[in-house]
Amino acid sequence: MNELSRDDIRHLSHLSRLELTDEEYARYATQLSSVVQYVAQLQSVDTSSVQAHLGVTGLTNVLADDVVREKGTPADIEPMDVINKAPRHHGRLIEVRAVLGGEVGAA
C-alpha cells in the first residue's frame, strides 16, 4: 500500500477531524505516498535474526508509587492558569462546542 488513494486521505482526514478541499486531497495523497515509500525502504532490511523489541529505550518496569505529589513540585500547577488559556471557559469548566450524536468516548 505504498500508493495512497484519495479515499485513503479522505478516511485519514476524517479520523483526524481535518477538513480538506478536493485539491488538498490530491496534493496530500501524493505527498503522504512519498513519505510512506521513503519509510518502506526499511522493508528491504533482513530482520530475520533480530529480536522484536517493545520500545527504543530498552527499559522495563518504570513505575511510580501510588503517592500524591507534594505541593510545590513542578506538576503542581494552578489549574485556573490552564483553564484561562482555553478558548472558552465557564467558571472552572472548559467550554467546547457540543458534540452530539457523534462518537462516543473510546473507554
Binding site: R88, H90, R92, L93, I94, E95, V96, R97, A98, V99, L100, G105, A106, A107
Partner: peptide, 17 residues
C-alpha cells in the same frame, strides 16, 4: 485510563471537567 466528564449545556456547548 478513564476519560474526563462532559456535561451538555444549553446553547450548543458542552462543559469539560
Amino acid at each position: 485510563e478513564d476519560a474526563g466528564k462532559l456535561q451538555h449545556a444549553a446553547g450548543g456547548v458542552s462543559h469539560v471537567d
